[in-house]
Simulated assay, not measured.
Amino acid sequence: MTEHRPGAWPVGTGPGPGPATAVVDDAPQSPQGPPVEVPVAEVRLVVTVDLTGRYDHHAQVSHDLYEQTRYSTDCHTAIVRLGEDALRVSSGLGSAIASRFFLVARSVEIHVPAGTRWAYVATEAQEYMRHYAADHAQLLNRTRTPG
């Protein structure tokens, strides 16, 4: 019986070739040139959320926002289109949008209908995103071990 140490395979039974099946490569090796650089185009992922439909309750807007963003794990830009109904029935849309995108999007664009009083939603979302990002950074700093 062959001697077997923990973590070692007995000769001839391991995952690699045994001693009797040595591979000999007689083919001449081709000289290697400089590495080839392949240009890669910059790709920016964009998530578009459309909340311009008919809404009667805040819960409908929140559900629709969640459903349209639940598979958006990482993106460069998030574009959120808001309609009159969504803005009328839903308070706190800036906070809701910020909480969905503050960790996954580098930029968030909020489109509201022209000539409405709802333009503050974009500013509100930016403010919440700054607060959420700062809070997240503090949380990470508290949970990291020193050293």
Rank of each mutant, 00 (worst) to 15 (best):
M1Y: 07
T2F: 13
T2I: 12
T2S: 14
E3F: 11
R5N: 10
G7S: 14
G7Q: 11
W9F: 11
P10A: 15
P10M: 14
V11I: 10
V11N: 07
G14E: 12
G16C: 07
G16I: 07
G18S: 09
P19Q: 04
T21E: 15
A22D: 05
V23C: 05
V24C: 05
V24A: 10
D25A: 09
A27R: 10
A27S: 06
A27I: 03
Q29A: 13
Q29C: 05
S30A: 14
P31H: 06
Q32T: 15
G33T: 15
G33M: 09
P35Y: 11
P35Q: 13
V38W: 02
V38A: 00
P39N: 03
P39L: 04
A41Y: 09
E42I: 10
R44P: 00
R44L: 07
V46I: 10
V46H: 05
V49Q: 03
V49E: 05
D50V: 13
D50K: 03
L51H: 04
L51A: 04
G53E: 00
G53L: 00
G53S: 01
Y55E: 03
D56E: 11
H57D: 10
H58T: 14
A59S: 15
A59K: 15
Q60R: 13
H63I: 02
L65A: 08
Y66M: 02
R70K: 12
D74F: 15
E84F: 11
A86I: 06
L87F: 09
L87Q: 14
R88Q: 15
V89D: 08
V89W: 09
S91H: 13
G94L: 02
S95Y: 07
R100T: 15
F102D: 02
V104N: 06
R106F: 02
E109N: 08
I110E: 03
V112Q: 12
V112W: 09
P113W: 01
R117T: 14
A119G: 13
Y120G: 10
Y120W: 10
E124V: 03
Y128H: 07
Y132Q: 01
A133Y: 01
A134I: 04
H136A: 00
H136Q: 00
Q138C: 00
L139F: 02
L139I: 00
P146I: 07
P146D: 07
